[in-house]
Design a protein around this nucleic acid. Sequence first.
DNA 1: TGCATGGATTGATTTACATCAAGACTACGA
DNA 2: TCGTAGTCTTGATGTAAATCAATCCATGCA
Lengths: 206, 206
Amino acid sequence: MQAAYLQTFPAQLTLIHEGDPADFLYVVVEGKVELFANSNGREATMAVVRPFGTFILAAVLKDAVYLMSARTTERAKLLLVPSEDIRKAFEKDDAFARAIVVELASCYRGVVKDQKDIKLRTSVERLANRLIRYDKDQGNSGLLELPYDKRTLASLLGMTPENLSRAFNTLKPYGVEVEGSKVRLTDMKSLLTLAKPNHLIDERTT
Amino acid sequence: MQAAYLQTFPAQLTLIHEGDPADFLYVVVEGKVELFANSNGREATMAVVRPFGTFILAAVLKDAVYLMSARTTERAKLLLVPSEDIRKAFEKDDAFARAIVVELASCYRGVVKDQKDIKLRTSVERLANRLIRYDKDQGNSGLLELPYDKRTLASLLGMTPENLSRAFNTLKPYGVEVEGSKVRLTDMKSLLTLAKPNHLIDERTT
DNA sequence: TGCATGGATTGATTTACATCAAGACTACGA
DNA sequence: TCGTAGTCTTGATGTAAATCAATCCATGCA
């Protein structure tokens, strides 16, 4: 940790580009970081990392290039640990190595769940389940705040901003009221009937 | 390894169901195993494991339930290692723990690449790139054999069998000739132009 | 106060893909 | 040799979502 940097970055700053060698492991201490990928002139958001998540762990361990690019969505405080140090600690410190494995296994299962989400659900179902998840995260009050702007949310859910807008309209009859970044869920029962949440997709802890 | 079972299974046998606790780690010794998932009455193939790949490693390490189901696509010989033993070895044997991490990191990067493939490409592009990959795996001869039946390939590529058929027709002008499970690539240059392969998606080793 | 800017929404249209419904081909067994 | 079942293919149609285009905001700023 001696050689690690704690640094603050402004919003919308690209931190790393896919294809670059993995020089640092990043830990989000404050703010949010969007992971995204490009190909063929197209772009897709892959994930958003919040405190205190890490990103680019697998690339660091394999001493490989990054598979995703990363940019801040808002002002963010990040810890940068030289990947050389991570690999050394990994060799020397058994407890560290095992802790790494648990983190990595969790990330892995997260991606698998994301893939099931995309392959097995329509975009409206994905949005419905996402809203239910955010509500749960924020205390089951039925009143939730979207954690990032709609453009980012749309890409994360694998749709265009236009379609997200329409998807919200589709959910109106199921008690979903949107006002800016605030969302009210007034008929959870019927929303659940539509969304059919599945703990093997939506549960993030296990 | 003392308690591991080496067993032969017939084709089309479901080995595990998603949601079940992870009792065994599986290693494919011979044949192929399809990993798939269900939700909402829909089904999707997530991956196909060949010798000598493992599956369900993350679930075993986390002592969690399986996220995917698995079935043999053909007669297969599998090694079943009790997950309890894996976790014990993981605790005691440092070299084993580190080897596990490398395998896990590779699997993780594989899923990320699959996700980029789905999010950034059309189905025809996915098929084109897949054919190029199989050709490379089989020695760049321009003559390749599809490793599983078209139904499975279709689901793996995220499309219906009907659409796979049509996608092959779309690729005909680009020198793709199909006959049963054999495919000839007679105009690699124009196929590459269409497919635009990207080593951050298609390269499987790094 | 007025005007630029970028996000969000809405409507019209196009495209990609799924679904439905027949056929065609293949392999296999009685 | 003829069913018969399974896989694959083809065509017609339907649906989900992308794209294109216009407008409607909010916000910041001179």
